[in-house]
Design a protein around this nucleic acid. Structure first.
Lengths: 223, 223
DNA sequence: GTCTATAATGAGATAGAC
DNA sequence: GTCTATCTCATTATAGAC
């Protein structure tokens, strides 16, 4: 695929207008990719939504694949920062327990997708699509595995008896459940009832904390 | 979308050869849809993989959307039957607990996708794609919600104190985690290590049983 | 039922004027 | 940087011979 963002060094700084155009295009691409997946969203649809001529999409985004990667990487960087900050604060405030570490991973994502800019909502659905499709493995590894490994190490420190396999599979179960809140809220509603995001957050934390603890061989709450 | 399978009533029974052709096409479609999602798999790719002329795909499968629906419905019927049988056996053998009811839902799926015909593997990945994409909501509701509601009711009977919302969200978390074993095994391996399916099944059951119990307000193990 | 050929459309990418 | 026009190719669907 070629994930290198490395185009040739820029001649001069882009104008404000150019930057704005670029963001508009990325926003449109993000929305349409999240609604119709990679192949279902055409460059022309994206241009139409961004209200720019088709040529500009290629100009700012490069090939469709690099555009896709750029869209995902854009907010992944911010997300990684938010999670790292939350974890740092948590660690600084004394003894971290499992629930708090988990919360540092899932809450920044859920807060951004539900209380951040409207565009974050689309981003959440997009990540769910990417995570369920091995075609985008390279993107997942580049954008999300570094942060994931930090949290895996942290959990392993809290629960040194757990096998790496148990931690890894529990972690992926947690990520899938978290993403379901974005991508499958319609199904939760269809099977039960509408619930506000705070309630869902609590259900998710309860579910994952207990699930982790069960898989890690000893109770972790209150350690 | 139009989910009606109702074409005009058949004039005469199709020949054995025609049925075989049809299955070959559905198998090819199943595989390619699971690898590249709906828009990424073309009718021509499907015809090439099935080694039939392009025209035959439309002839047997109808439009691309009805072909997609047919592919998913085909094994959904069998899956629903396997789950219903497992549940029936479980209920007949005395007091059902939470873990056994959960197992009746997830194990038929995991057994088919990992020990059934090779095609079931593709089907598992395909369902994961469908579940993360609201475009296919209609398919999910037609193919999987009836069975889901049977299990939701069963869980509600075992744990009458739980709110429908807590049960519904826990159920969707469980489904997402189950599907992750099919669609995101590469990620589990990348973050930890390869684990055989029996180990993953146990991790999943432990994770979900504890997660459900935590969300349902009282311990369910051993009820 | 099977297969070929083709119609009609839309795709991604880019050259070149402004 | 912006925008238009166009090149080239692949797509779904179907008409009609066998």
């Amino acid at each position: 695929m070629g994930l290198q963002t490395g185009k040739k060094p820029r001649q001069r700084a882009p104008s404000k207008r150019a930057l704005k155009t670029r963001e508009t295009i990325l926003d449109a691409a993000e929305y349409l990719f999240s609604e119709r997946s990679f192949d279902g969203a055409s460059i022309r649809d994206i241009a139409a939504r961004a209200e720019v001529p088709v040529g500009l999409v290629s100009h700012h985004g490069g090939s469709k694949e690099t555009l896709f990667f750029t869209v995902i990487a854009r907010r992944a960087d911010e997300l990684a920062r938010l999670r790292a900050e939350a974890l740092e604060t948590c660690l600084a405030s004394g003894q971290p327990d499992l629930r708090r570490v988990i919360a540092c991973f899932v809450l920044p994502f859920l807060h951004q997708t539900h209380h951040g800019q409207p565009q974050w909502r689309a981003y959440g659905r997009l990540i769910a699509i990417v995570s369920a499709d091995e075609r985008w493995r390279e993107i997942t590894q580049a954008c999300f595995d570094p942060t994931a490994n930090i949290f895996l190490d942290q959990i392993a420190r809290i629960l040194p008896d757990a096998s790496r396999g148990a931690i890894g599979s529990s972690f992926v179960f947690m990520v899938s459940s978290m993403l379901a809140i974005c991508a499958s809220s319609w199904r939760i509603e269809a099977l039960s009832a509408h619930q506000d995001i705070e309630t869902l957050e609590e259900h998710l934390l309860d579910f994952c904390e207990a699930g982790f603890a069960a898989n890690l061989g000893r109770m972790a709450r209150g350690v």
